[in-house]
Structure formats: structure tokens, C-alpha cells
């Protein structure tokens, strides 16, 4: 809070108006609509609607398809978060150590940030193309009977790999800046107190990176939940048999392809609750950061 502020009756409202108007029209109103629709059932021709309380929730959320998507989303998010964080941390620590070539490494490791998820998806898709994809051929050549069009595990492998690849660079940037934020004097004191570099990393550096790591975890989970839509949509599209459906992809599928408005809205509302939980988590983290 500023010690001194302007006191005006109308000017501040004028300044916030553009954003607030857009928010009301394109955020709050549609969100309210989604909640409203989640309690309605529309007949097949969209001619009449009926208020059905929680039936949409019961029908969709308890369906095996939704539960399967929820299960996949959880595993997928956990894998993507863990793998991309681990890989990025390893690279950031190494990039922070070297002097020669540091800039080149840094640049080449971060630029994939600029690639859109669906573009990464299409690229990956072509790499795993049965006709021209070298990765497809390679995996089969080493004795893995690989077919991501038919096998659920193989399909998951493809989307996880692409999602991790796309996310490493963001994590790398944050880890590297976190590492560079650790004061030199602390590192030097640690060098005097502890001979083993590995032990030094786990006892000094890693705990000092904890705020960054925690923050990135929330970011990565959010990414895996929502932004990977573009990857799924350009690779497996939920195949085979819904095995790689994420919750967001399913909302889209049911709403636009299946035209099941009520069910899709109910799923949206559940997603809102998930975002709410993630945000609360993030805020508790910020509180903790204050102490740190």
C-alpha cells in the first residue's frame, strides 16, 4: 500500500473500467452460465430444458469415462511435473556450474519456451509417425512392440514425452534464476563447511531452492491440467479408447463434439474447483515465502 495516494472520485473507476468490463462479459458471465447449465438437462434437439439439480454431475462425474480421464490426468500431471522439474533442475544446476559456453547452453535450453504446445504436439506426432517417424521405428527396432495408436501405455508415453519436452525450458529458466539468486557468500561458506558437492547440493542449495520448486510445482500441475490440451489434440486425441483423455480435453470433446452441454458444464464446474484448490495451495505457499 502506498503511503500517499491520489484521492479522486471518478478517475480510478475510469482506469479499471476496461479490464472490469471485459472480465464481467467474458469471464464472470460465462462462468455463471457454466454453473447454471450444469444444473440443466437439454433434450436432444435443444428444444426444451429442465432443471435437474445434480443429475448431470452424477451422470458424468460418476461415469467410467470421466473417472478414467480423471485417473489419467492425475498420473499424467504427476509424471509431467516430476520429470520436467527433475530434468530442468539437473540442467539448471549444471548450466550454473559451467563458465565456458554458459550463454550458449542457457539460450539453447530456454528457447523451446516459445513453441506452442500444439506445434510441439504436431512435431512429436510426426516423429512417432509409423511411416516416416524415426522414433517409432527405433523403438520397434530395439524390441519394444510400440504402437501408440493401439496401446494405451505407448500412447501415454508419447504425450508425456512431448508434454515434458515442452515444459523443461520454463522450469529451467526459473531454476537457473533461483540458483543465481543464492548469494555467492552462502555458496562459499558451504564450500568451506562441506567437501562433497553432492551433499552440498542436497543440504544447502536444494533447500534454498524450495520456494522456487514449490512454486514451479503449482505452475506445472496447472500446465499439465490445462495447457496440454493442444498436445493431446494434435497427437492422440484421447485415443486409444479414451486412455489419454485429460479432463480438459474431455470437456471440449463432450461440449463441442458430443453437444452434451449439461454434462460438459458439470465437468467445467469440477475443473473450477480444482483450479480453486490449486490457487489456495499457491497462496499458502506465498505466505510461507514471507517467512523464508
Amino acid at each position: 500500500m502506498k503511503r500517499v495516494q491520489f484521492e479522486h472520485s471518478s478517475i480510478p473507476y475510469l482506469f479499471v473500467a476496461p479490464q472490469i468490463i471485459i472480465i464481467v462479459v467474458f469471464f464472470l458471465w460465462p462462468a455463471a452460465q457454466a454453473i447454471h447449465q450444469s444444473f440443466l438437462l437439454e433434450d436432444a434437439f435443444g428444444l426444451s430444458t429442465q432443471f435437474v439439480w445434480f443429475r448431470n454431475y452424477k451422470d458424468t462425474i460418476l461415469s467410467t469415462a470421466w473417472l478414467q480421464a480423471a485417473g489419467f490426468t492425475l498420473i499424467f500431471s504427476a509424471l509431467v511435473t516430476f520429470l520436467s522439474l527433475g530434468l530442468a533442475l539437473l540442467l539448471a544446476v549444471k548450466a550454473n556450474e559451467v563458465i565456458r559456453g554458459a550463454r550458449t547452453y542457457k539460450t539453447t535450453l530456454m528457447w523451446a519456451y516459445a513453441i506452442a504446445p500444439p506445434v510441439a504436439g504436431l512435431m512429436g506426432n510426426l516423429m512417432f509417425n509409423p511411416i516416416i517417424g524415426d522414433l517409432y521405428k527405433f523403438l520397434n527396432a530395439i524390441g519394444w512392440d510400440f504402437d501408440h495408436k493401439l496401446d494405451a501405455f505407448d500412447a501415454s508415453f508419447v504425450v508425456v514425452l512431448i508434454a515434458v519436452w515442452k515444459q523443461v525450458s520454463v522450469n529451467f529458466i526459473f531454476f537457473l534464476s533461483g540458483l543465481q539468486g543464492i548469494p555467492h557468500s552462502v555458496q562459499e561458506a558451504a564450500t568451506m563447511d562441506c567437501r562433497s558437492p553432492t551433499r552440498r547440493f542436497w543440504t544447502i542449495t536444494f533447500p534454498l531452492l524450495a520456494p522456487t520448486t514449490f512454486f514451479l510445482m503449482v505452475i506445472n500441475i496447472t500446465y499439465a491440467f490445462f495447457e496440454t490440451f493442444g498436445i493431446i489434440d494434435t497427437t492422440t486425441r484421447g485415443a486409444p479408447g479414451g486412455a489419454t483423455n485429460t479432463l480438459v480435453f474431455k470437456v471440449f470433446q463432450d461440449g463441442f463434439r458430443g453437444a452434451d452441454l449439461g454434462g460438459s458444464s458439470a465437468q467445467s464446474v469440477v475443473l473450477m474447483l480444482i483450479v480453486l484448490a490449486l490457487t489456495v495451495l499457491q497462496f499458502r505457499f506465498i505466505e510461507r515465502k514471507v517467512h523464508y
Partner: peptide, 14 residues
């Protein structure tokens, strides 16, 4: 509030 409402959760009404 907009942080709680990513596009993905309100896509159809939007």
C-alpha cells in the same frame, strides 16, 4: 477471480 477461471473451464459459454 480471473485466475480461477481459465478459458478451459468456461469454454462453451464463452
Amino acid at each position: 477471480m480471473t485466475l480461477l477461471l481459465p478459458l478451459e473451464v468456461r469454454i462453451i459459454p464463452s
